[in-house]
């Protein structure tokens, strides 16, 4: 492999420079950093780009040689050259496979699904847990709000009802259309109402404040969802890398795969899609009015 190695002096210099750092990393238990140093050294020893270039150059050289030898009728030497070409090709393949293996390892590390690091849970599992937490929080907030509203509504209704009745009685009093006995009753009824108004109004106000506070889930779930969105983006990028690498493996090994037919099952609609996020899509009804228009066009 001497033809693809960097100048030995340069590599030695780098090795001398990096070796103490490597030892340092290993001593301090910083294995990831140590591996990075090793990878760097390995790259310095076999730089891929120049390797690829050299392989092509070598193949071209040998091909010319082969052509000359066949032209000269020198079949024995031609066969040797052919074997040389085969060797060059194999070496190129090994290098490429080595490079891809390293890249694949990096991609998998970036994929956050590697749960082999001891007790630590993978980021994917973590993301799932986080989303369950969002469901839990929103559920709790919705139920709390509903509880408070269900408690407050009858209270507000009762206050309004009683106020209506008292107003009618009061109008009779103003019109002097009331017996002293009825007035005495109204007197105490008003007294009762004011007491109730005081306590119920403060209860209602308290419930409103609690409803207000129950909305704090938006802040918490927003943060969690933003984190998960970030992870999904990273995973997407890693997947694209992986697919790109797989295509390279296929290209150098000559594997041809047929893509799966992307047939949309007819009953996809029946299963449901969930809320439509992109309301501007052509086949999505943006509002209740659009739905009503569609239905009326169907004779509803």
């Amino acid at each position: 492999m001497s033809d693809v190695t960097q100048g030995p002096e340069e590599f030695t210099a780098l090795l001398k420079e990096r070796a103490p750092r490597l030892v340092e990393h290993v001593d301090s238990g910083n294995i990831d950093a140590a591996i990075n140093v090793l990878v760097e050294l390995q790259h310095a020893r076999t730089p891929e780009l120049s390797a690829e270039h050299d392989v092509m150059e070598l193949l071209r050289e040998k091909a010319l040689l082969l052509h000359d030898r066949i032209s000269d009728g020198n079949y024995e030497d031609a066969l040797v050259t052919l074997q040389d070409m085969q060797n060059v090709r194999d070496r190129g393949l090994y290098q490429e496979v080595g490079r891809l293996t390293r890249a694949l390892h990096d991609a998998i590390t970036n994929f956050h699904i590697d749960s082999s690091k001891g007790e630590e849970i993978s980021e994917m599992t973590d993301a799932t847990d986080r989303l369950s937490y969002v469901v839990e929080l929103t559920d709790k907030a919705a139920n709390k709000t509903l509880d408070l509203v269900e408690e407050s509504l009858p209270m507000a209704d009762a206050l309004r009802e009683e106020a209506g009745e008292l107003k009618r009685e009061w109008e009779r009093l103003v019109a002097r259309d009331m017996t002293p006995d009825e007035f005495r009753k109204l007197y105490w009824r008003l007294d009762e109402y004011f007491k109730r108004l005081d306590s119920d109004a403060s209860q209602l106000s308290g419930n409103m404040t609690e409803i207000l506070l129950a909305q704090d889930f938006q802040d918490l779930t927003g943060q969690v969802i933003n984190k998960v969105t970030g992870l999904v983006k990273e995973v997407e990028a890693s997947l694209v890398d992986l697919v790109f690498m797989a295509s390279q493996v296929e290209a150098i090994t000559g594997i041809v795969t047929k893509g799966e037919d992307t047939e949309v099952p007819a009953d996809k609609d029946a299963k449901g899609h969930g809320p439509q996020i992109h309301k501007d899509q052509e086949d999505v009804m943006a509002s209740q009015d659009d739905v009503d228009d569609l239905l009326s066009s169907l004779g509803f």
């Binding site: 029946a270 899609h273 439509q276 086949d283 999505v284 739905v291 169907l298 509803f300």
Partner: peptide
């Protein structure tokens, strides 16, 4: 009363004999 708002789905529901279709999020008035 649903978040499903694709044209084909609403047509399918109408064909299946739905009496009304309200898309979420909805209002009390709707």
């Amino acid at each position: 009363v649903t978040a499903e708002a694709k044209r084909d789905q609403i047509v399918a529901a109408a064909q299946a004999g739905v009496n009304g279709y309200v898309v979420k999020p909805f209002t009390a008035a709707a």
